[in-house]
Amino acid sequence: MVAEAIRQVARQPRGDATRQSILDAAEKVFADLGYAAARLEDVAQAVGIRRPSIVYYFPGKQQLYDQVEADIFASMHEFVLKRVKHAEGPMAQLLALLDAWLDFLVARPTAARIIQRLVADFAPRGDNPVRFSETALRDIETVISMGIADGTFRQVSAMHMLNGVAGGALFYVCNAAQLGEGRSYDPADPAELAGFRALIHKLAKAAVLPG
């Protein structure tokens, strides 16, 4: 029994690494192809394993997709909490939240493309569209509610802010190479990113400040 326990411990890191490799590859496949067109075979090929090896960790495509989406929003929420933690006051927290979303998506463009596909495609999440994105919605609702409560912000819909201001980060990342010749840009370029960040800040302030 001791020998078997030792073997189990030895196998665990390798199993965890394989599972993570599957998730990393799946995120790119789902981002590139969309949920409907993506196949477990595509993920297996990207990892360099056979399809049955994926099924060992994830019973099917839906379960694999669920884990990819769950990881994206959990990671984004954790990233937001670290940024907002030291921001004082509703405005600073709102800008920190928007900056966190922007920086997260720039650093992880596959996540941006999956979220953008989620907005337009009911197929992978028809049963509960906010099953995993609920944390992101609550993050912005919390900041907006705090600002309204203490009089810093005017009465403004958090969902209007999400769609009218925060959602621009998705287009900024996903449209970088989709605008035709002469209009392409690198979302991670410091100058481009600084310019877009300044615009987001300006729009956010205009949307929430009284007067």
Rank of each mutant, 00 (worst) to 15 (best):
K82V: 02
S133G: 07
I200Y: 00
V84D: 11
L118V: 00
Q8Y: 12
P90F: 11
Q8I: 12
A96P: 09
V173H: 06
A17T: 10
A31C: 08
R197K: 15
D103E: 06
P190Y: 01
R19A: 09
G182S: 15
R113A: 01
I140E: 00
Q178G: 13
Q45S: 03
K82R: 09
V9W: 15
D42C: 11
K205A: 12
L98I: 13
A188K: 07
S184M: 09
D99C: 06
I115Q: 00
L102G: 04
E192M: 11
S53N: 15
F104L: 02
A207N: 07
L95K: 01
Q12S: 02
D121Y: 14
A37E: 12
S184Y: 02
F79E: 03
A70F: 04
A3D: 10
V29W: 02
V43Q: 14
Q116N: 12
I6W: 09
A194K: 13
A100E: 05
Q178T: 08
F153R: 13
L209A: 03
L193M: 02
Q20P: 09
D71S: 01
R50W: 10
H201N: 10
A5H: 14
L33G: 08
K28R: 06
A169I: 08
D139H: 00
A169N: 09
D103N: 11
T18Q: 13
L64T: 07
V130E: 02
R11V: 13
L81D: 14
V173I: 08
K82D: 10
E41D: 13
